[in-house]
Computed example of a mutant assay.
Amino acid sequence: MEKLRAVLVDLNGTLHVGDQVVGDAVAALQRLRASETPVRFVSNTSKESKQALLARVKRLGLDVREEELFTSLTAVRAEVDRRGLRNPLLLLSPSAREDFEARNLPEDQEHDGVVVGLAPDQMHYEALDRAFKALQRGTPLLAAHKGRYLATSDGGIKIGPGAFVSALEYASDTEAIVLGKPSRGFFMQALASFGIPDLALEEVAMIGDDVRDDALAAKEHGLLGVLARTGKYTSGDESKHSSAPDVVVDDFAHFVDLLLEARK
């Protein structure tokens, strides 16, 4: 770990869960910044807008800056703009829709795409059937991510949007375009923002609580994949797949301790 020059950090489940800070994450982030280690935050949070997420972590005392934050929703919005979609069906929460202002036209107008995030109130038969009918016309299915489940503030887990994305894929015989983690493009966008021309992939760590979308995805893309035993982590996650995370830590503070100790 002594060769690490930059760090990508997940938010929900790693630094906080809902409105609760995970362990000593606030102080650990301060120590990481004091070491002059460049950091970016890569979040699959898709239930609230980027601004709402920023406001939440700032209330918790976490030093997260807007220019350092990359969310799956902003990646989806960029893809919507790139494709020139005027009226995608947004299966998103009211907060998440704020990242798609002027993109929510009346329901009786034909949709030219489907966007799916974490939106419990939208995951009912009528909404999914509207999405299915739009996809039957050949419109693209854009997913913020395909997370299987996520952490809750009471220490449990609940189903994520991945099951609903998969249901739409199956029904419409369409493959979703996943814009957040674990897509390589999402990671590369965050890495490019460091602005370090000679930064090698193996000199960057990605720490998160999702063994597949954080640690193993990072490892597959050439980064150091670090799994934190917090958030959605369940016992034995590190050994449930054919590959294993490069490093497993108790929490974010433990990771920072290891990183700074390795540099001595």
Rank of each mutant, 00 (worst) to 15 (best):
K181Y: 09
K181R: 08
P182E: 10
P182T: 05
S183W: 05
S183F: 01
R184L: 11
R184W: 03
G185Y: 00
F186Y: 08
F186R: 08
F187Q: 08
F187M: 04
F187D: 04
F187Y: 14
F187V: 08
M188A: 02
M188T: 07
Q189T: 11
Q189D: 09
A190Q: 06
A190W: 11
A190C: 07
A190L: 12
L191K: 03
L191W: 03
L191H: 01
L191I: 14
A192G: 01
A192P: 00
A192W: 00
S193Q: 12
F194W: 10
F194H: 09
F194T: 04
F194V: 00
G195F: 04
G195I: 12
G195W: 07
G195T: 11
I196N: 09
I196D: 02
P197H: 10
P197R: 05
P197F: 05
L199Y: 06
L199C: 02
L199T: 05
L199A: 10
L199I: 03
A200P: 00
A200I: 00
A200F: 00
A200R: 14
L201E: 10
L201M: 07
L201C: 04
L201I: 02
L201N: 05
L201S: 03
L201A: 12
E202D: 15
E203D: 13
E203Y: 00
E203R: 00
E203M: 01
V204E: 11
V204M: 12
A205Q: 06
A205R: 06
A205T: 12
M206A: 14
M206T: 06
I207F: 08
I207H: 10
I207P: 13
G208I: 15
G208Q: 13
G208P: 08
D209P: 00
D209Y: 03
D210F: 11
D210E: 07
D210I: 09
D210R: 04
D210Q: 07
D210P: 01
D210H: 14
V211C: 14
V211N: 08
V211K: 01
V211H: 08
V211T: 06
R212S: 15
R212I: 15
R212Y: 02
R212G: 04
D213Q: 09
D213R: 02
D213C: 13
D213T: 12
D214I: 15
D214V: 13
D214A: 12
D214P: 08
A215H: 03
A215L: 10
L216P: 09
A217H: 05
A217E: 09
A217L: 15
A217S: 13
A218C: 11
A218D: 14
K219W: 07
K219F: 15
E220V: 06
E220Q: 07
E220T: 06
H221T: 08
H221Y: 13
H221A: 09
G222R: 08
G222F: 06
L224C: 12
L224R: 10
L224T: 14
L224K: 04
L224G: 04
G225L: 15
G225T: 01
V226Y: 11
V226C: 06
V226R: 13
V226K: 05
